[in-house]
């Protein structure tokens, strides 16, 4: 897994590529939480993520909770394929804020 961050219209966007599993999810968790500390709005781009396991989902949930508790925003976009399947299996599609496109994630 590799990730990089950029800022668009005040939202920090974390672009993630590859597979998120128990080996890589702690790194992603730290990247997202650090981004959330530095801004009021964080979006994660999952369009190039081919796999995510329950530890990755737990990391996303932790960031979601932190954002909610600190009255900030955490949104996902590019959720397709294997990632969407895991979110559905864990019944979490209704919990997260999920946008179809980056533009929607930034402007919503």
């Amino acid at each position: 897994m590799k990730s990089s961050t950029r800022t668009e219209k005040g939202t920090v966007i974390v672009d993630v590529v590859g597979q998120i599993d128990m080996g890589s999810s702690p790194v992603l968790r730290k990247t997202l939480l650090d981004s959330l500390k530095a801004t009021k709005s964080v979006a994660i781009n999952l369009s190039a993520v081919r796999y995510i396991d329950s530890s990755g989902i737990a990391s996303l949930l932790e960031v979601f909770k932190e954002a909610r508790n600190s009255q900030k925003r955490f949104v996902m976009f590019g959720v397709t394929g294997a990632v969407l399947q895991v979110l559905q299996l864990t019944r979490l599609t209704g919990i997260f804020e999920i946008c179809e496109t980056e533009e929607q994630a930034i402007n919503a």
Binding site: A58, L61, F64, K65, T90, I95
Partner: peptide, 18 residues
């Protein structure tokens, strides 16, 4: 049983679901 936003316990749930 999964709490709505619990951080753990989803792995076993996934295994049984699949």
């Amino acid at each position: 049983p999964m709490d709505e936003v619990s951080l753990s316990g989803r792995g076993t749930h996934l295994i049984k679901a699949v």
